[in-house]
Amino acid sequence: MHSLAVYRSAHRIALRDRTLQLLVLAAVVVITSTFGWLLLDIVWHGANRIGWEFLTAAPRSAGRNGGIAPILLATVLILTVALAVSAPLGLATAILLSEFSRPGGRAGYWIGLSLDILAGVPSIVFGLFGNAFFCVWLGLGFSILSGGLTLACMVLPILIRTAESGLRTVPNDWRLGAAALGISKASALVNVLIPAAAPALVAGLMLGIGRAMAETAALIFTSGYVDRMPASLLDSGRAISVHIYDLTMNVAGGDRSAYASALVLIALLILINGAASWLAERTLKRRITAS
């Protein structure tokens, strides 16, 4: 009797273990196959439309034909504006948080809290704000400048948090060593701490670029829809993600171009991430072997 009960419970446990194993495996298969499907689908439908002409020509008949040159330019301009504003601001705030604020200090706490809240604000709300503040209140209208500034606000928390944690991982020995030599924090930062944290800073920057480039909702009513070649930062410009959205939703027969643009967007994102890891690695190597 007794041994039978033990046998039964052992059997039940074996069954439970087997089931869990199967469930986990099934989940992994679902995830990877869905991802594979998604990726293959985009490459399959997007690749045949991509060529030199697609990258260098202007869109024709609402984007069904032609290329995406003005869209690429607008994307680059929006990103440039966003980073030109957010990178210095972000680095400065990160330095303040990691080097000048005491752990548990009040200023650091409030700044950090406001950043965490900002990081949680939905991108469409950034769009609303950008429209009300940059487009209307500051009178910048639907423009690359408005869109870039809106994105700058959006990526600020990521930039600051990654830069801050990058700076915090720099060994304290160097801070103490510099201080003991009577070196100002400013010089220690410029000469030692920032170069040492460079890989993390670059990685954070790339993360921010990736986030900004993938963004659509915050741009629809800040940088606008116009797909002409932008002539200045005050022109409206259509970012590539907005282009994909417009082709999918508003242009009958725009699917092929949408897929091709999506492929370009993903390729750009992968390129940026690759460049980031390469840069980070190179910085790291140079730091160890030479000046």
Partner: peptide, 10 residues
């Protein structure tokens, strides 16, 4: 210092 801490420079 106890632990040598040259800067990561030349």
């Amino acid at each position: 210092f106890q632990k040598p801490n040259p800067f990561p420079l030349s």
